[in-house]
Design a protein around this nucleic acid. Structure first.
Lengths: 210, 210
DNA sequence: TAGATTGTTAATCGATTAACAATC
DNA sequence: TAGATTGTTAATCGATTAACAATC
């Protein structure tokens, strides 16, 4: 399970997309698919699909293709979608609240356990049916509940400091929406920086240079 | 400006990040930087930085490095951050409202001109100081104001249909948050699919496989 | 069995890194 | 001028694609 560096990041980043497409095919009632047909649906090459899936084992069958239910289960297992990792959200501003309500965490291997904010005005109110807690109570909460994922919806200025503190409390992974490139020196911490600004700029680039 | 296929997508996708880091350095009062120093800040190689920037022209000076103000201006121009492309947002749910309020559009080359929703309950209310309009009025609006970017914060089911309609109205670029891989056959349309679910799953993958 | 399609190896392509001559 | 650092070419590395033997 943990032979390091074996599977390239490029492959890993494609897994959720496979998982999505396969899920949709199942919903449509499809039972099996060949790499060729899937490649057309996903705008990939059949070769790449076979290569990617074979990183994790031989999920297909010659002459038949891939059984979708089975394949979804396998990819789901690899992604850990059934783990329900305890997750906390820091920062109950517009974006934080939207993430809390909009995301169906259980689909993605997570479970939203608490929301924190430093603004005393917000503390006690709810978002996504969860009471917003005072950030000052986070140590106590962490000790009791041992969350391992933190979603950061906080300003750039405080991101690194809070992240460092959270690592001390046992957080193992960050989903970072702060306008800051979170870099943690602790080598075993997982960081996914989401830069929405970078993303929308690509549109303006595309229009400008076309 | 439009010699097609010249600059690789990998380079383009790094541009906003350069732009961000350079902006921060300027804020800190830094005047110039060498590719070597910038590479340390950004966790890249100096070689890559020089290669990337040289795709667009010689912005540096031997023996000196890069003038940050100048470099920021050049990259900004390439990204089109000063264009203020007229943008509409479709879907005033949690996420749509958060995007509207949270994003500083003018920083990213866009200007949020209108918000639409199909829910008559929402029509007339405001988000980010902008009145939510009835989606049925979109043709009229488009004819008058000619927006060219659309942000889709709508359910998967209606995404493709609405996108097709919007292309008919002159939309040239989509920032798509719907749980759907928008594929447009019109070759000159720009699409940036943002799959937050895919992103958070990478955390659960990382924890599971470490 | 014959046909289909995988798993896997080999070939190609592109992106990153290294090296260094040009030059400020 | 000497030192620093770019712009750019060449070398390396990794990822994608093609090909085909294995096999259901």
């Amino acid at each position: 399970m943990s032979k390091k560096g074996e599977i390239s990041l490029s492959v890993i980043r494609r897994l959720p997309r496979y998982y999505r497409f396969i899920g949709e095919l199942i919903k449509e009632g499809t039972v099996r698919i060949s790499s060729g047909d899937l490649s057309k649906k996903m705008s990939l090459t059949a070769s790449q699909i076979r290569q990617d899936l074979n990183c994790f084992g031989g999920f297909g069958q010659q002459g038949y293709g891939y059984n979708l239910i089975e394949l979804r289960q396998e990819i789901g297992k690899i992604l850990g979608v059934d783990k329900g990792y305890k997750t906390i959200l820091i920062g109950a501003g517009n974006l934080g609240k939207a993430i809390a309500t909009h995301m169906n965490f259980s689909e993605y291997g997570c479970s939203l356990a608490a929301i924190f904010d430093s603004d005393k005005q917000k503390v006690g109110k709810t978002a996504a049916g969860i009471t917003i807690r005072d950030i000052d109570d986070i140590d106590e909460f962490a000790e009791e509940h041992k969350p391992i994922i933190a979603i950061l919806c906080i300003p750039k200025a405080s991101a690194q400091e809070i992240a460092d503190h959270l690592v001390g409390l046992g957080i193992k992974a960050f989903w970072n929406f702060s306008h800051y490139d979170l870099r943690l020196d602790y080598s075993d911490i997982i960081v996914e920086n989401v830069h929405l600004g970078d993303s929308i700029m690509l549109l303006s680039y595309g229009i400008t240079n076309s």
